[in-house]
Amino acid sequence: MTPRRPAPIALAPVTATPAEFTGEIMTELRSQGFAILRHAVPPEILAHVDAELNDHFARTPFGQGDFYGRSTKRFGRLLVRSPASRLLAGHPAITAIAREILAPLCDTIQLNVAQGIEVHPGEIAQVPHRDEDMWHGPKGQFEYLVNVMWPLTPFTRENGATRLWPGSHGGQGADAPTDDPGQAATCEPGDAIVFLGSTLHGAGANRTNLPRRSLVMGYSLGWLKPYENLWLAYPPEIARSFATELRSLVGYRQHRPNLGNVDGLCPSLLLDDRMPEYPAAIDALTPEQEAMVRAHAERERSLEAAREP
């Protein structure tokens, strides 16, 4: 018998303001590389997401390879498979934290990954790793991404709660993994584990007789190639149903200067059928670049005008 998807319900949007969370959380993130937001969303939102994903977890096979886990299930395209998960992806405090961490190096952030994870009994502890290592760039100079784990079931030491190593972030990111067992991020559905891309972490061993479920959502610098191919995961016919902020997070926005454009225009125009067949390309520059280009253009026009007879 095929499991039934839960009927849609009217879930209240997440309305917590960034100021309610970010002060102490930002201090912890910068000092130890991770923090736990307690009661970030009502638990019923996570319960609904969990119900929406039941069938997807049931149908997904175990991974192949010791990194993904041979007794672990993973799948992407989360925002399609669980419409309620969109509330989590656009959480105002979470996205504010990601922007504050990443803003010095980018014009806008993007969703790097949105994935469901189910760790089954008997799974061994995952190798400690840093997610920033997916990009071949300098380490320890800036942050590439901010990750968030949303527990769908309680995270305990026994069932393999994500392990994190305090102080392993930033300039320590190039150090070899330690023999220290790390700190288990024990928490409940409704809490959110936030950690930097340079923070050493890994799933723990599940020594219980029940699976442990969670979501991982990551936010990266907007000019990076993301872990998940967003435009294939959420093509225009899917993304046009998203809220404006979520459209931007999944790639339907230019990153100045002019990155990710379609015929010289912002790809968001594709979602509302506003893209002309033969558009005129429009500059999308940073304020500093606009000033430099404007000064150059004015000087060139003056020189050309002086040459006219």
Results as ranks from 00 to 15, higher is better:
187 C>S: 08
76 G>C: 12
69 G>Y: 01
248 S>H: 10
276 P>T: 06
63 G>E: 01
15 T>D: 06
273 D>E: 08
37 L>Q: 09
272 D>M: 12
47 A>S: 11
132 E>G: 10
226 P>R: 07
172 Q>P: 04
133 D>S: 12
44 E>P: 09
280 A>I: 15
121 P>A: 07
85 S>C: 12
266 C>T: 11
167 G>K: 10
44 E>G: 06
271 L>T: 12
280 A>L: 14
119 V>D: 00
74 R>W: 06
182 G>P: 08
165 W>M: 05
67 F>Q: 09
49 V>H: 01
68 Y>P: 14
189 P>A: 04
160 G>C: 02
279 P>M: 03
201 H>S: 06
146 V>N: 01
146 V>G: 03
309 P>G: 15
284 A>T: 10
40 A>Q: 00
224 L>V: 14
77 R>I: 10
195 F>N: 03
75 F>L: 05
160 G>I: 07
144 Y>F: 13
120 H>C: 08
281 A>V: 10
130 R>I: 08
70 R>D: 15
254 Q>I: 12
77 R>S: 15
161 A>S: 05
8 P>C: 01
42 P>G: 02
213 R>M: 03
33 G>D: 01
170 G>I: 05
212 R>D: 02
211 P>D: 00
256 R>C: 13
247 R>M: 09
240 R>S: 13
276 P>E: 01
266 C>W: 00
288 E>L: 13
95 T>R: 10
188 E>V: 14
91 H>W: 03
236 P>I: 09
256 R>E: 10
2 T>Q: 09
308 E>P: 09
47 A>I: 07
296 H>Q: 13
23 G>R: 10
57 F>A: 09
20 E>D: 12
170 G>K: 00
308 E>Q: 15
159 N>G: 12
211 P>T: 04
272 D>F: 09
212 R>H: 08
127 V>H: 11
249 L>K: 09
23 G>T: 10
92 P>Q: 08
190 G>M: 05
133 D>T: 15
143 E>V: 14
306 A>I: 13
22 T>D: 01
293 V>P: 04
172 Q>A: 15
40 A>R: 04
3 P>L: 12
128 P>R: 08
3 P>H: 04
255 H>F: 05
48 H>A: 05
54 N>V: 15
134 M>S: 11
73 K>W: 05
94 I>N: 04
164 L>E: 02
154 P>M: 06
226 P>K: 10
288 E>Q: 11
19 A>D: 12
141 Q>K: 15
279 P>Q: 08
36 I>P: 02
90 G>I: 05
43 P>T: 08
170 G>R: 08
30 R>W: 00
298 E>M: 12
195 F>Y: 13
96 A>E: 00
217 M>A: 11
129 H>N: 04
305 A>R: 15
288 E>S: 08
270 L>S: 04
255 H>Q: 11
116 G>P: 05
304 E>H: 13
220 S>G: 13
73 K>E: 02
289 Q>P: 10
287 P>S: 05
200 L>H: 03
258 N>F: 07
210 L>I: 13
119 V>E: 02
42 P>H: 01
203 A>S: 11
110 Q>G: 14
159 N>Q: 10
203 A>F: 02
61 P>A: 14
9 I>D: 00
2 T>N: 13
206 N>K: 06
144 Y>E: 06
204 G>F: 02
64 Q>N: 06
58 A>N: 11
83 P>S: 06
44 E>S: 07
137 G>A: 07
239 A>G: 11
226 P>H: 07
168 S>L: 03
121 P>Y: 01
300 E>T: 14
200 L>G: 03
